[in-house]
Simulated scan of single mutants.
Amino acid sequence: MTTYIPQLTLPEQVFASAPASILLPVALGTTVGYSTRPKQTKETYNLIRQPPLRPPPWVFGPVWTVLYGLTGYGAYRGIGLNLTSILPGTMSVARRAATLYTVQLGLNLAWMPLFFGARRPAAAMLDVLALLGVNAYLARLFFGARDGLADPVAGWCWVPYLAWLSFAAYLNAGVGYLNGWDISDAALRRREAAGKGAQ
């Protein structure tokens, strides 16, 4: 388990307020989404070779908005409501969970710039795998497994998130494999030219 690192953790006031806890990840996710140039992202998404079951591009915005809101509410329930607990050890676990939540939020926000900004599917894959690990541990804490925070509602808020992250890892790995782990502009242009030449 990680330790509580105040410099690396969102302020406790964020977790103590349900609206702040919900709106902060939604606002940060929206900001990152728009900062990576949505039009160019959509073009890249349509040019890269994709594995089966890929959703249309318009699905991602609504899904991530709901997931950010759910995890924000889960963080409020699982962390915020336990930061003032008088139960032995609960406040300490809540603080460590707050650090983990902050780390996972940073990892989540880094994925889109890694994949679509830097065009590094291998780095994005490592990011999403780390994200899965941290969030599986957070869900375990929220469900109350050993030294947990025992808030099943918070735990259930993490289940759709973990399912979507697993799907995102599949998509990331599929894109990486099908594109030789290279989705740079030059590689995409070469594939597009080769496709036109084959017609």
Rank of each mutant, 00 (worst) to 15 (best):
Y4A: 06
Q7L: 11
L8R: 14
P11Y: 08
V14N: 03
V14L: 13
F15Q: 10
A16Q: 13
S17T: 03
S21C: 03
I22K: 00
L23R: 09
A27W: 05
T31Q: 01
V32L: 10
V32W: 08
G33D: 11
T36R: 13
P38D: 12
K39A: 11
K39I: 10
E43V: 12
Q50E: 09
R54Q: 02
P55Q: 10
P56K: 04
P57T: 13
V59S: 15
F60H: 10
G61A: 14
P62W: 15
P62K: 15
W64Y: 08
T65W: 08
V66E: 01
V66D: 01
L67T: 03
G72W: 08
Y73C: 00
Y73N: 01
G74W: 08
R77T: 01
G80L: 15
L83F: 08
M91Q: 14
V93Q: 11
A94H: 06
A94N: 06
T102F: 03
Q104Y: 00
G106Q: 08
P113E: 12
P113I: 09
F116N: 05
P121K: 14
A122V: 11
A124F: 07
M125H: 05
L132F: 10
Y137Q: 06
A145T: 07
D147N: 13
G148H: 05
L149M: 02
L149I: 04
L149S: 05
A150E: 07
V153N: 06
G155F: 09
W156E: 00
C157K: 08
C157Q: 03
Y161M: 03
A163N: 01
W164E: 09
A169D: 09
Y170H: 02
Y170T: 02
G174M: 12
V175I: 15
V175T: 15
Y177W: 14
L178G: 06
G180V: 15
W181N: 10
W181I: 13
D182M: 12
D185G: 02
R190D: 10
R191Y: 01
E192S: 11
G195C: 03
G195L: 14
K196F: 07
